[in-house]
């Protein structure tokens, strides 16, 4: 890494680090399941940024992590959609939007 200027890729890797931390914080403090889902997604985006930014920092474009992240995004949306389906079902059955263990 060049010493004085922060490279673009490194900058986004750092943003990814912060997003991971922020997402974890939100995931712990919230009890509402939708908010937890949002926090989980923020965490996922952070790890994607970290993955690509770190791999490309000082090395140029790297298609392998990019392809992995592309796969990851599709899996993330599928799991979000599935979580929403399960959440609605749970909400319909119990009328709650939190899980009983958390109360």
């Amino acid at each position: 890494m060049s010493a004085t200027v922060l490279a673009t890729d490194a900058l986004y890797a750092w943003v990814g680090v912060l997003l991971c931390g922020l997402g974890l914080f939100g995931f712990i403090i919230h009890r509402h399941l939708l908010r937890r889902l949002l926090a989980f997604n923020v965490m996922g985006s952070g790890s994607f940024l970290l993955l690509v930014g770190l791999a490309q920092d000082g090395r140029g474009i790297d298609p392998v992590p990019q392809a992995l992240v592309l796969t990851g995004i599709v899996v993330a949306v599928a799991s979000t959609a599935l979580a929403l389906v399960i959440f609605r079902r749970w909400h319909r059955v119990s009328g709650e939007s939190t899980l009983p263990e958390d109360v």
Binding site: L18, G21, L24, F25, L50, L54
Partner: peptide, 14 residues
């Protein structure tokens, strides 16, 4: 605390 710890670990990795 937990998120700071995770941030620190990831920063170390970076």
């Amino acid at each position: 605390l937990a998120s700071l710890a995770v941030c620190a670990a990831l920063a170390l990795a970076v």
